[in-house]
Each structure stands twice: as structure tokens, then as C-alpha cells.
């Protein structure tokens, strides 16, 4: 039996999102390091394909996300289940549309959130190489691979592949491999950089 107990589900969920966001909104880390403030806001649509050996075709989810430095985030699924994760000014909330309307997800513990927020901030500042959890490797001009350093994390996520766009600051795709039978593919579309985002986007469902 393969069990993983070091990471709570809440922490894993946030790490998962953090990894998606470690897209490093530039196609060169050095460029980001030289000018870390170049990208301050990001908006994009995304399609999430969940590939499982069990399913003949991937399970499709669609959504949008907004990010504004230093640490405001809205990660919203619109189908098949509406769910919104909000992070703003150190406060983290998650809302899900259930059978009896919108409810706050009590499964996401604030304590775990605080730890993960630090990791997310590190990722979003483009600081891949200093992250103790993942070893980053540039495969080509447009492909980066992240491999967990922590054996406990490796049992949850084997590796992540980031596919960067030719347009600086834009990512095309992220693949997160969990096991030989399961991986998640995120495809980003309509990415807009440095457009003004209203504060309420990070505060309201």
C-alpha cells in the first residue's frame, strides 16, 4: 500500500496550485531575476484535463484565474463544479457551489494555508531555484522540468513540465505527473499581462 501522510490534502491542493503558478511569467529565469517586477498582474482562462488510466477520455474542467503581485490570487473553476480559491492580504478562502448553494470549504485549514502561501509567494516571484521542494531543470528554451527534492512529495507528484510560450511572460501548458496512471494537463488561453484587476476579484465569490 502506498500512503503519504506528510502532506495534508489542504496543503497538497495549495501546492498543486502553486506549482501551476510556478509558471514563472517569463521564458527566462535570468530575465525574471533581473526584473522581478516586470509582470505584476496575470489573467488567463484555463482548461484542465485529468488523465486517468481508468477513463477512456480525460475529465475536463474549465476556469479562469487572476494573479496580482505580491500575493493576491483567484483560482476559479467554472465547470463541472464551480469553486473559487481566493487569497488576498494574507487571508485565504475557498468557496464551492454545493447542492444547497455556495458554501465555504471548511476542509481547507488556515494553518496549512499560511505555510503554503510562503511557498506560493516564492514561486510567484520567479524564484524556482531557491525552492527547497523542487529541483528545476531547463529542458529547452520553452520547456522546464521540476522534480521534487523531498521523497514524501515525490510520492504525490513525480514531476512537473512547464511549456512556455514564445511570447515572453506567457505559458502555454503545464503537465503534472502523479503516477504512471495519472497526470493533469493545464492549457492556458487568452493570457493577459499587467492589465488592471479590481481588488474585489480577490475578495468576492
Amino acid at each position: 500500500m502506498k500512503t503519504v501522510s506528510t502532506y495534508s490534502p489542504a496543503r497538497i491542493i495549495l501546492l498543486f496550485i502553486a506549482l501551476v503558478l510556478c509558471i514563472g511569467w517569463t521564458n527566462a529565469w535570468e530575465e525574471m531575476m533581473e526584473d522581478p517586477d516586470a509582470v505584476t498582474c496575470v489573467k488567463a482562462d484555463f482548461i484542465q484535463e485529468k488523465h486517468l488510466k481508468l477513463l477512456s477520455r480525460p475529465l475536463i474542467s474549465k476556469g479562469v484565474f487572476f494573479f496580482q503581485s505580491p500575493g493576491s490570487l483567484r483560482w476559479e473553476y467554472q465547470t463541472p463544479v464551480r469553486s473559487v480559491l481566493l487569497m488576498h492580504k494574507g487571508k485565504v478562502e475557498r468557496y464551492i457551489e454545493g447542492s444547497r448553494g455556495v458554501v465555504r470549504d471548511s476542509g481547507v485549514k488556515l494553518q496549512a494555508m499560511q505555510v503554503v502561501l510562503q511557498e506560493i509567494s516564492q514561486f510567484l516571484s520567479g524564484n524556482f531555484q531557491d525552492n527547497p521542494n523542487f529541483k528545476a531543470e531547463v529542458i529547452s528554451d520553452f520547456k522546464v522540468s521540476l522534480v521534487p527534492e523531498d521523497p514524501a512529495m515525490e510520492k504525490i507528484i513525480q514531476r512537473i513540465e512547464l511549456f512556455l510560450s514564445e511570447t515572453p511572460g506567457v505559458i502555454d501548458e503545464v503537465k503534472i505527473f502523479e503516477s504512471r496512471d495519472s497526470y493533469t494537463r493545464l492549457i492556458f488561453e487568452n493570457t493577459r499581462l499587467n492589465e488592471t484587476i479590481e481588488e474585489r476579484i480577490f475578495q468576492e465569490m
Partner: peptide
């Protein structure tokens, strides 16, 4: 064969 996963697609139980 039963799989539980988060809405984000992370498999919690298989």
C-alpha cells in the same frame, strides 16, 4: 476501482 481526487485533479485515494 475507486478514485477520489480534489477538484484540482490531485488523486487522494485510489
Amino acid at each position: 476501482h475507486s478514485i477520489l481526487m480534489t477538484i484540482e485533479g490531485l488523486v487522494l485515494f485510489d
